[in-house]
């Protein structure tokens, strides 16, 4: 009995020593890393936190110096921007949602078959076509915005979601083509041969066999298209100035007029940013790949 107890205390002591050793094995440099990482996290998150907290503060607390870290949160600003009779933000979010969703769907519809063909076929001019697709990533939107305004005006498409849905394809189609092309290449060609034997034509083989297998790439490109379309301001500002304003246009209009209402402004900002930040967190591993058109894996 006493012996057993002795053994137990011995074991405990051994464990304690092991833990202590493990702790002491953490070198000073690791503690430095810890501090630096925490500082980095603070630097990244503080502005974001500032936006969200301002949206939850009473107007008086916004101006408090030193800034109030602890405050009684209020939803009055959200209530105002979403539910007051003069609230325009719901329409803005709705317009953004319509534009971003439809341009994404259209980009997938047009882009995935093209990506499949580019992945499977060799033909003259393929490289040039491919380069031209990528080049669209580099064109400054202001260059096409000027003529697009005139074209949309003549076609009576100003202030409609259709104009934005179409113009966002300039950056969405190349994105879809690039990301899905990579995905299709990874699918073994044997499956195509098998499908041919089973009597599938090219389109059926794409639609029934390759596309389902490429779903991960399709989803990632869809989410990235949605984020970029949702965030876009310049085209929306020029083409949809009066009606059909998207949420970023409304945000830009906040700065005109007297007496900036910070709480409402930040509540609007939070509402705009939240969905895309969540989406981005889902595809975080692919974000760099999408932004560099695949130059970085």
């Amino acid at each position: 009995m006493a012996q057993a107890q002795n053994l137990q205390t011995n074991l405990l002591a051994q464990q304690a020593r092991a833990i202590a050793r493990r702790r002491s094995r953490i070198p000073a440099s690791a503690w430095l890393q810890l501090v630096l990482l925490l500082l980095l996290l603070l630097f990244i998150l503080t502005p974001f936190y500032w936006m969200v907290s301002t949206s939850l503060k009473e107007q008086n607390d916004t101006f408090a110096i030193p800034p109030k870290i602890l405050f009684t949160p209020t939803l009055e600003h959200y209530n105002f921007v979403l539910f007051s009779p003069s609230a325009i933000v719901p329409t803005g979010l709705q317009n953004s949602l319509i534009v971003a969703t439809f341009t994404t769907l259209l980009a997938l519809l047009l882009g995935t078959p093209a990506a499949y063909i580019l992945a499977r076929f060799e033909f003259r001019g393929k490289r040039d076509l491919w380069f031209w697709f990528i080049s669209n990533r580099f064109i400054s939107p202001i260059v096409v915005a000027l003529p697009f305004f005139l074209i949309a005006r003549d076609l009576r498409m100003l202030n409609t979601p259709q104009a934005l849905i179409l113009i966002y394809l300039t950056f969405n189609i190349p994105l879809v083509v690039w990301l899905c092309l990579d995905q299709f290449r990874a699918i073994p060609r044997d499956l195509d041969e098998q499908a041919k034997v089973d009597g599938c034509n090219l389109f059926q083989s794409f639609w029934r066999i390759n596309l389902p297998l490429a779903i991960p790439g399709v989803v990632v490109s869809a989410i990235l298209c949605f984020i970029f379309s949702w965030n876009e301001l310049l085209f929306a500002l020029i083409l949809n100035r009066s009606t059909g304003q998207t949420a970023p246009v409304q945000a830009a209009n906040f700065m005109t007029g007297f007496g900036v209402k910070w709480g409402e402004m930040m509540a609007t900002g939070t509402l705009i940013v939240l969905p895309v930040v969540l989406f981005a967190a889902i595809v975080s591993r692919h974000l760099a790949r999408g932004l560099t058109m695949g130059a970085i894996k």
Partner: peptide
């Protein structure tokens, strides 16, 4: 990922 994804217009505000 958060700063990258944040709507630039909102970042400006």
């Amino acid at each position: 990922v958060i700063p990258i994804a944040m709507t630039p217009a909102v970042v400006g505000l």
